[in-house]
Write a protein that binds this DNA or RNA. Structure first.
Length: 889
RNA sequence: GCCCGAGUGGCGGAAUUGGUAGACGCGCAGGACUUAAAAUCCUGUUGCCUGUAAGGGCAGUAUCGGUUCGAUUCCGAUCUCGGGCACCA
């Protein structure tokens, strides 16, 4: 009987299902003396197209680890579920003209079948679906927790809003507003990323992906829900140190959070339109360049603009603001290389030298970063220089590179007049002495050179002559002493835009009163379910389709009996996946999202595998939610995922990304039908390290199927289907033990080291099989041990042979084999002999032959003798168990 | 422009820590079995030069240079590709 993958895989999948082989018992039934291991795959989004070959790659890796860890005696949690709210599911449903709920059911069914056909060892009793109301009830519950919390600046953590100190003297309305302004979930009216094609707003993190798909994204002021993730910027940054994640992902998150240290500086405004003096605050990372600030620029959205603009400039300014507001982000950045701007007619006073400097507006200053205003130091900032050159604004060099330190600073310090290099004596003094330095200063003044690095201050009064670091420190002190500014830290990270104007998402547990106020629902009123409707297409007006369903929107406030309208925005796709890993731990609990004791046992996740595309989106959001839950005491750990691993992409056979339009998509169903799930699993692991991007190969998987057939025929007689006659019950011979123990050692190391390089494990198994074929007879014990090694990789195949050899299923209960170094090591080792570093000869010697003998062997070697004949031996290097190198002249 | 990561045969990829470059697989070539094919098994497979042959020589891990007895591995510069960020003051 030949190896029949279709029949065998079906048989064992049914067996595992029926016997619940991979069920993880509830906490009170578990043997707690064993260590735990939580292996998690990133929650898949079931699409209409089904799986592609990229999905099983990561899933196979986690499956290997799961099966291995169970054999090693761990309690393993290895669950699977579905992330199904959001745009793709909704777009799919629109295309098919069905309700998304129906569409999701279809896709999930298909995905589940496909995953099962891969023989993955999930505990299917813990399956979750983010669109199930029993699930999203808790997503809404968590939103309430976020909404009903504020961030305590002293303790740097979230606390219940009931603990917030509200000033007594405020009126009721002011109190309401004050509390709302402190909540971690809040409504804000600000420019957001509006995507007209999708009819919804997008989070900053989502914009690049949609632009890549060819959608447009424009800035548009809208009232939206946001989550105050910025309060957690510092913790999200710091705690990256405590997790074992790929450096690239840490780097990505670090850049996204974008911490920068600097100072806030206050500039007084001098304007004809104002009687009192107003102040403009700016953020700068280089307070040492304050003496070089020759003008200011405000973002077009800056609040002070209407107040300070002079009548003469009003028209032009208003026009500019109008034009800027209509530009998309893309237009404001990439497409427009030329700087634009307008003069307000107003001036500010540079606090360090009392100089009057003009105030401009320009869209190169972003309203959402820092204070929305900058001081311009054109000599030392490329953007400022570009602007200054275009509008003919003054440029003063205030920092010089290290190489001019001596010619510049030292010399002038001796003369006691460090700050007058530009005019008068300073320049005179330099003439003839250092033309190069003089030319450098001229280039800066003329806008030809821009020096943005650190160096030494010049033309800067009390900080002239200081190195940048010292200059910054001294300036910061000066600012603080004079009440003109202070040290400050800024982050690029913005608050998370949390509402979408679409149907297919979690409704907010919020209701609005007629007077414009709103309140959250009580926990007992959850879940707020999505109404089943016919038309759920995006209205495109900026309003959710839910707004049109009056019988859903209009309801009554439980507490007051007043008529209220439900919030009609829905939550973004990421909401459900922010906490799913907690639900797996306690999926049926209807009292709480996850029992705290169970959380304490299973969390944190020991291994988390998924694609790199989630580096900032999901992984940042999930960490943020987890920290809030931690602060409020619902979970026991600060970070959810201890180890993260990114699997690489699988490309088409042509070496480019798989896509329908290219026609290079490989369907796993076909592969499993033709070669079997075991061959596919093995091949995906054999293609290369898990993290690498690598092309698919149909011929390659044929080779893997050949390998399994070779193993099969090693044991089974093809014609009779019986165990082959040369398989004996004798103990393995020494030769057999040698090939076995080497393989056990290699494979155990490969799995344990966490590099996810299973290609070498499989190579080792192939070597073992090749060696076994050379034996006259084979011990049954050897084959059984080999099957245990192969089992995590090709489980159906191994279960079948295991059973055929007379053993009881399942192999899952067998312990992982141990190796003995006495057999894993080679007794004989090949040592190479080199002359002048060039390998000339080699010899087999016993392991650990001492250096003296090795040297003697080399000197006795006729080939070596030939190469050193008639030459002087300068040096002999001997490395035990490796080589001898003779240096001659 | 800035920040990561990677460049090894025809291809995917191996090479503890600086110590035999190319494990294992694919492909290809030759052979065995077969009436034939498929399947299977065996042999060979970095390039160039040399030899009837066994063999021998030289070059070779993107390029150039450095450290070293010895470099795919360490250091410096350059090139190419992939990923991320991009007026963040």
């Amino acid at each position: 009987m030949k190896y029949d993958h279709i029949q065998i895989e079906k048989k064992w999948q049914e067996y595992w299902d029926k016997n619940k082989t991979f069920k993880t018992p509830d906490l009170n039934e578990i043997d707690k003396s064993k260590p735990k291991y939580y292996v998690l795959d990133m929650l898949p989004y079931p699409s209409g197209d089904g799986l592609h070959v990229g999905h099983p790659e990561g899933y196979t890796a986690t499956d290997i680890i799961s099966r291995y860890k169970r054999m090693k005696g761990f309690n393993v949690l290895h669950p699977m579920g579905w992330d199904a709210f959001g745009l793709p599911a909704e777009q799919y449903a629109i295309k098919k003209e069905i309700n998304p709920k129906i569409g999701v059911e279809e896709c999930v069914k298909r995905f589940r079948e496909q995953l099962k056909s891969l023989g993955l060892s999930y505990d299917w009793d813990r399956e979750i679906n983010t669109t199930d109301e029993k699930y999203y009830k808790w997503t809404q519950w968590m939103f309430l927790k976020v909404y009903n919390s504020y961030f305590d600046e002293k303790e740097k953590k979230a606390k219940p809003i009931s603990e917030l100190h509200v000033p007594e003297e405020l009126s009721e309305k002011e109190k309401y507003e004050y509390i709302n302004s402190q909540r971690l979930a809040f409504i804000s009216e600000s420019p957001v990323n509006w995507c007209p094609e999708l009819g919804t707003v997008l989070a900053n993190e989502e914009v690049p992906e949609q632009l890549e798909k060819g959608f447009t994204v424009v800035r548009r002021p809208m009232k939206q829900w946001k989550l105050r993730i910025t309060k957690y910027a510092q913790r999200l940054l710091e705690d990256l140190d405590s997790v074992n994640w790929p450096l690239s992902v840490k780097k990505l998150q670090t850049n996204w959070i974008g911490r920068s240290e600097g100072a806030i500086v206050k500039f007084k405004v001098k304007s004809k339109t104002l009687n009192d003096e107003r102040e403009i605050e700016v953020f700068t990372t280089r307070p040492d360049t304050l003496f070089g600030a020759t003008y200011m620029v405000l973002a077009p959205e800056h609040k002070l603009i209407p107040e300070i603009t002079t009548d003469a400039c009003k028209d032009k300014i208003e026009k500019y603001i109008e034009a800027a507001s209509r530009k998309s982000d893309l237009e404001r950045t990439e497409l427009v290389k030329d700087k634009t701007g307008e003069f307000t007619g107003a001036y500010a006073i540079n606090p360090v030298n009392r100089k009057e400097i003009p105030i401009w507006i320009s869209d190169y200053v972003l309203t959402s970063y820092g204070t929305g205003a900058i001081m311009s130091v054109p000599g030392h900032d490329e953007r400022d220089m570009e602007f200054a050159t275009k509008f003919k604004l003054e440029i003063i060099p205030v920092v010089i590179p290290e190489k001019y330190k001596d010619t510049g600073i030292m010399k002038l310090k001796e003369e006691g007049s460090p700050e007058i290099i530009i005019a008068g004596k300073g320049v005179e003094a330099l003439h003839g002495e250092s033309k190069e330095f003089h030319d450098y200063l001229e280039d800066v003044k003329n806008g030809k050179t821009c020096f943005t690095d650190e160096g030494y201050s010049i033309n800067s009064g009390f900080i002239s002559g200081l190195q940048t670091g010292e200059a910054i420190a001294k300036m910061n002190n000066w600012l603080e002493e004079n009440g003109l500014g202070k040290k400050s830290i800024n982050y690029k990270l913005r608050d998370w835009l949390f509402s979408r104007q679409r149907y297919w998402g979690e409704p907010f547990p919020i209701v609005h009163f007629d007077d414009g106020t709103f309140k959250s629902l009580d926990e007992s009123e959850l879940p707020v379910t999505l109404p089943m409707v016919k038309s759920y297409k995006a209205s495109g007006t900026g309003e959710s389709p839910l707004a049109a369903i009056s019988e859903w929107v209009n309801t009554t406030d439980k507490a007051t009996g007043k008529p209220v309208k439900r919030e009609t925005n829905t939550m973004p796709q990421w909401a459900g996946s922010c906490w799913y890993y907690l639900r797996y731990i306690d999926p049926l609990n209807d009292r709480i999202f996850c029992d705290k004791e169970k959380d304490n046992y299973w969390m944190p996740v020991d291994l988390y595998i998924g694609g790199a595309e989630h580096a900032v989106l999901h992984l940042l959001y999930a960490r943020f939610w987890h920290k809030i839950l931690y602060d409020l005491g619902y979970v026991n750990h600060n970070e959810p995922f201890t180890v993260l691993f990114n699997q690489g992409m699988i490309l088409g056979e042509d070496g480019v990304k798989m896509s329908k339009s290219r026609g290079n998509v490989i369907n796993p169903d076909d592969v499993i039908r033709d070669y079997g799930a075991d061959s596919m699993r093995l091949f995906e692991m054999f293609m290369g390290p898990l993290e690498a991007t690598k092309p698919w190969s149909t011929e390659g998987i044929g080779g893997m199927s050949r390998f399994l057939n070779r193993v099969w025929r090693l044991v089974i007689d093809d014609r009779t289907g019986e165990i082959k006659s040369n398989v004996t019950n004798e103990k393995p011979s020494e030769a057999e033990l040698r090939i076995l123990h080497k393989a056990i050692k290699k494979i155990t190391f490969d799995i344990e080291d966490g590099d996810m390089k299973f290609n070498t494990s499989i190579a080792q198994m192939m070597i073992m099989v090749n060696d076994a074929y050379k034996l006259e007879k084979i011990s049954k014990e050897l084959i059984e041990k080999f099957l245990l090694l192969l089992y995590p990789f090709a489980p159906h195949f191994c279960e079948e042979l295991w059973e055929k050899l007379g053993n009881k299923p399942s192999m899952q209960n067998q312990p992982w084999p141990e190796w003995d170094d006495a057999y894993a090591k080679n007794d004989l080792i090949t040592v190479t002999f080199s002359v002048n570093g060039k390998m000339r000869s080699k010899k087999e010697v016993e392991l650990d032959t001492d250096e003296k003998n090795l040297e003697q062997y080399a000197m006795d070697d006729p080939i070596i003798l030939k190469h050193i004949l008639g030459k002087d031996i300068i040096k002999i290097i001997v490395v035990k168990n490796r080589m001898v190198n003779i240096v001659v002249k």
